[in-house]
Write a protein that binds this DNA or RNA. Structure first.
Length: 243
DNA sequence: AAGACACGCAACCGCTCCGTT
DNA sequence: AAACGGAGCGGTTGCGTGTCT
């Protein structure tokens, strides 16, 4: 049994806010504050809205310090840099941008920045056991994935030309088809030789190094290897954004 | 002109965190 | 220590609008 909902959804209004509702909420908060209780606020203010909805509306649109309008190049730069370093922690990223909200930043990333970066091209050096090879890519790498795959500060990914025994053990636990397909895709996309595989440095068993793999990784077979390697390849570019 | 499609954004959902009892 | 409940967060959805065919 799940937890009880925060309000009775049959008795509250949903959907877009009207100017009248905005005025009521704004006036109430400016006169009385939030009272530290969003759940009780709509009743006190005379709004037929869920407390969560009121909170969202105030924080994202009615707050007096909200910055409206498009994002500047500098803001894009900050968002990109932070995303690389901390991942999709939108509230943290938004806190670095005066007047921007997490929802704003998230939408901007999903609709504009991500595509912008997908269409930009860069390259990085991936170290193999033989000679360094240049691979190009265009995707981003959040910091947790940098940690996850233990990418070093010079953004080089260590490839082995063969899968070692430990890797085979780990891989055998995963969904073989998914892994195989991912590897084939990776090799094709990156122009890598068919015998190129990640070393154990590129992933870690569950719980190792403080990394918790509850899902979506190589071990469970849910891991999109081609994408992550693309991200790794672009990390060098991304890291340049961070002073 | 109109229908299809793409895009951007506001809002909701459901989960986790954390303070209180 | 455990249970509870509100706040906060990130992911996702749905709708309005613009653009293309």
């Amino acid at each position: 049994m799940g937890r009880s909902p925060c309000c009775d959804k049959t008795k509250v209004k949903r959907g877009p806010w009207s100017p009248e509702e905005d005025t009521i909420l704004r006036n109430h908060i400016q006169n009385h504050g939030t009272g530290g209780n969003w759940i009780a606020l709509p009743h006190k203010a005379g709004l037929k809205r869920c407390g969560k909805s009121c909170r969202l509306r105030w924080l994202n649109y009615l707050r007096p310090d909200i910055k409206l309008g498009g994002f500047t190049e500098e803001e894009d730069h900050i968002i990109s840099s932070l995303y690389v370093n901390i991942g999709s922690r939108w509230s943290v990223i938004a806190s670095h941008l005066q007047g921007r909200t997490d929802n704003d930043v998230k939408n901007h990333w999903n609709t504009k920045l991500k595509k912008k970066l997908l269409t930009s091209h860069s390259s990085t050096t991936i170290k193999t056991n033989n000679n360094p090879v240049q691979y190009s890519s265009s995707v981003f790498l959040p910091k947790q994935e940098v940690d996850l795959y233990q990418i070093t500060s010079n953004s080089m990914l260590d490839y082995s030309m063969e899968v070692n025994y430990q890797q085979q053990l780990t891989i055998s636990k995963s969904n073989d088809n998914i892994f195989s397909n991912s590897m084939s895709s990776l090799q094709a996309n990156q122009g890598m030789p068919h015998y190129a595989y990640p070393t154990t440095n590129d992933y870690a068993p569950s719980g190792e190094n403080g990394v918790d793999f509850d899902g979506g990784d190589l071990v469970t077979g849910e891991f999109d290897f081609g994408q992550v390697i693309g991200e790794v390849a672009n990390f060098n570019y991304s890291s340049q954004l961070w002073p």
